[in-house]
Design a protein around this nucleic acid. Structure first.
Lengths: 341, 341
DNA sequence: CTCTGGCATGGAACCGGTTCCGATTGTAGC
DNA sequence: GCTACAATCGGAACCGGTTCCATGCCAGAG
């Protein structure tokens, strides 16, 4: 254990040097009224002279507040999740809070995190990204009255920041229908029930509704589900494109998967958008780069909003509307065009 | 401020219920010897009955240890950085430490982080990814005697986990030279001096050395520097490929930039690897997906190793060799082939 | 049977802040 | 000149743990 604890200057040292009591130093530090200006400046001088900085741990214990927020997210691997995290981080820094991160990639880890974390003494609040809490997990959080905000996840009773994924599915397919496509495929995620929440299913629902509304149907052979990797998506797209009646367009549940589909088309010598249209979801940097038509949702901003709401709750503001829906929009680029036939 | 602090059970409550002193409860909690087995089990019963969990903040104050590590990294946007962070997170969880993350994307933020963070008693240690500390920053850290480990960054006196970027540059270009390429280009990062550390320069050095060793040179027209985005890389590659004497191969300082170069070739109607060979760096998931020949470095593992070393330092193990070099290797995929001419 | 030594344990002191209470000082009002 | 009250401030108590020290008790040695 390292011994030298640097400048071990405490509030008592400051008090002694300034010739005042500890309480007075504390009052100066916290900018309370009722401190004589002359006393105040003497204290400030002492603080400067000693290069004193208050010990946050002691402060936390005394105030029973940690100034720390925990963020739980699965899949730190996904660009969209990381982008939300960036938003959270930026907003927390502005608010003077620390962010501690829990990446849950397995069910065991998920259980461990929900068992250990939600203790009042550890954090002041919780942000959960792309993960819908179970009832038992929720019950534990509720019992200790810990403020929580979800991002991209659902629960009837919890404040959350989401986008309308059904609408997103509709926007993508509406665009393709308007271009004249009639055989539209879908590539999405496995709904990994025990672990994470996946928006993929909702997007598929949107696609289905829009296509049904147009008087068409989407055959089972044009719906492919697999894990989130572009490689898997390439396999699925290849299989879909090489069957008897291939689609003229594919809606993908993420930009990453759309990149996989583009790769498949490329390998098969198909021209995008000439022979095949592809849409993505999220509008991450990759989408711009690939010229992907995609559904844009405000990822960074979702993190910012979640923090704003969480800090509001911590400071006693009523949570307002539970389900905050963020706007989404279709970004048309060069991966979609009318079908050639 | 919310009042209900859930189960506000303290060690005193446990002591009272078990009919022992607080010290004894603490001894049981910390599995110290010198506790009578009968007393021990009475205490354990009381703990279970009250569902008691020690308050970490109080523990921290008393032990003068935070059980928390700070991670500073620029560019949470880059897949390679995130992958390192994943490794750090995984290893810290195993060690029972919390991770607090600081994403620095501007110079102001960098300054703020280095000013506020290494204040005593905030964290037990520091991991810095892809950012070489200035002397002034270092002096501040050194003064408070805070253990630090760098990842993918350099400083003579600090323990660090790095890979040999010069070698990486050589591996990529050696491969291309062996295939018969003679005009080899390079696309890399701006060396953003005030903010982050960039390995790009070192990789270019490696490329230069290898090419020089082969009796060739690399003209200025074949070296392009730009920011890290694939879009920018596409622009640079396009310009490079449309000049009078275009390269037959391009070494890129990252997989992301290689993706940009592939995109440029694609747009120009060039066949990869027929008309152009491209290499990347890092071997992120994208590289596998694109079939990119690349230099693989253990990103996740770099985070794990940094944590192992940091925790060792915290527990008093001598740091050993300062500069720990991780192995890298060339992964040959389908983006490289002999030149057609 | 007494002395000695060691184990178990209660409780005080401490970590470094905040806050509350009561005392002191100063001043305005009569 | 005295009272009343407000402003200011010192210091105790507290947040909830850990650790050290002193004490009580018991067993074994002489």
């Amino acid at each position: 254990m390292p011994e030298g604890n640097g400048l071990g200057v405490t509030i008592s040292d400051v008090a002694r040097l300034a010739g005042v009591g500890r309480g007075t130093v504390s009052r100066v530090l916290n900018e309370r009224a009722n401190v004589d200006p002359r006393t105040r400046s003497r204290v400030l001088e002492a603080i400067a002279a000693l290069d004193f900085v208050p010990n946050p741990t002691a402060r936390r214990l005394s105030l029973r507040r940690t100034q720390t927020i925990a963020v739980i997210l699965p899949f730190l691997t996904r660009p969209s999740a990381v982008e939300r995290l960036r938003g959270v981080e930026a907003a927390l820094v502005r608010g003077g809070y620390d962010m501690i991160v829990f990446n849950v990639e397995t069910v065991e880890r998920r259980e461990a995190v929900f068992r250990d974390l939600p203790r009042r003494e550890r954090v002041d609040g919780l942000i959960i990204i792309s993960l819908s809490p179970h009832e038992t997990e929720l019950e534990r959080i509720g019992r200790i009255d810990l403020p929580v905000v979800l991002i991209d996840a659902h629960h009837r009773t919890l404040p959350r920041v989401v986008a309308d994924d059904v609408l997103g599915g509709r926007l993508a397919s509406r665009h393709l229908l308007a271009l004249g496509h009639r055989r539209i495929g879908f590539i999405g995620d496995i709904p990994r029930i025990p672990l994470a929440f996946t928006s993929s299913r909702l997007r598929l629902t949107g696609v289905r509704r829009e296509i049904t509304a147009a008087g068409l149907t989407i055959p089972a052979s044009l719906v492919a589900i697999g894990d989130h990797s572009p490689r898997r998506s390439t396999e699925l797209a290849t299989r879909m494109l090489t069957q008897r009646l291939p689609p003229t367009a594919i809606v993908c549940a993420s930009d990453t998967q759309a990149a996989g589909a583009l790769e498949a088309a490329n390998a098969l010598g198909m021209n995008v958008p000439g022979d095949l249209s592809v849409t993505g979801y999220d509008d991450i940097e990759l989408a711009d780069h690939l010229g992907l038509t995609t559904v844009r949702q405000p990822l960074f901003e979702s993190g910012v909003r979640a923090v704003e709401r969480l800090l509001g709750m911590i400071h006693g503001t009523p949570p307002g509307v539970l389900r905050e829906v963020q706007p989404i929009s279709l970004v048309v680029r060069r991966s979609t065009a009318p079908p050639s036939v």
